[in-house]
Amino acid sequence: MPKLNRFNIEIETGETGTDLPVHFTINNHKMPLEDTQGGVAQGKTFTGGFEIGSFAHSLTLVGPESGQWDIRKMKVDYDCEHTAPYSVVFGAVTLDETSEVNIWQDPPLPTWDV
């Protein structure tokens, strides 16, 4: 697992939106995203990020304190130490006050033709 310098996230909200701020957890510590733009109401797009500077044993996006939040799509850009920047697109998920969604993916494995 490489050291995660920074991540940025773009979230497209579906049918049911929620309220700002958007929180994430890094290794079980909850914080609000920074450098935010846009919104998380129905049909809106939100962007944010965070300078982590540490190893991400877990990285999650936290559900709303009440109600549901339909996420249509999330794109996460990772900037890790000694690894080329990479992005992962996650599909639809619904969060509520009992859930959070994993947004960590290890860097892609190297592949080559033989």
Binding site: L95, T98, E100
Partner: peptide, 24 residues
């Protein structure tokens, strides 16, 4: 909170059809 997994969307870089060559 329960940690759930969202599906990872694989975006195909390029469509690769069947090939006569053995590709590994």
């Amino acid at each position: 909170r329960r940690v759930i997994q969202a599906p990872v969307v694989i975006e195909e870089a390029e469509a690769s059809g069947p090939s006569d060559q053995i590709l590994i």
